[in-house]
């Protein structure tokens, strides 16, 4: 893929965040700042799996994801 992972992840998060408008930054928390609810979080996980061709994200991996930077790290690790 042409764009670095973090750029694509930020775009994807921004397009799916229930809180509209504005740039998404690494420090923002998915739930507290961007207002992802439990269903929107599942939508995001599925979108990430599709976009980066990942295996389903396990609960254990998901537990540690709080911020946008954590999402980038999760995807970077999984895509190696």
């Amino acid at each position: 893929m042409a764009e670095p992972v973090e750029v694509t992840v930020r775009q994807l998060v921004a397009s799916m965040a229930p809180h509209p408008g504005g740039d998404v930054t690494d420090g923002q928390r998915l739930v507290d700042d961007l207002h992802f609810d439990s269903l929107a979080l599942i939508e995001l996980a599925v979108a990430l799996e599709r976009r980066f061709d990942l295996a389903p994200i396990s609960d254990d991996e998901a537990m540690d994801v709080v911020t946008v930077a954590d999402v980038v790290a999760l995807v970077s690790q999984a895509t190696g």
């Binding site: 928390r29 998915l30 739930v31 992802f36 439990s38 979080l41 599942i42 995001l44 996980a45 994200i57 609960d59 998901a62 537990m63 540690d64 994801v65 709080v66 999402v71």
Partner: peptide
């Protein structure tokens, strides 16, 4: 139960 991405730390 914990709800996937993003909820972990607060759970």
């Amino acid at each position: 139960p914990p709800a996937g991405l993003g909820a972990g730390a607060a759970y």
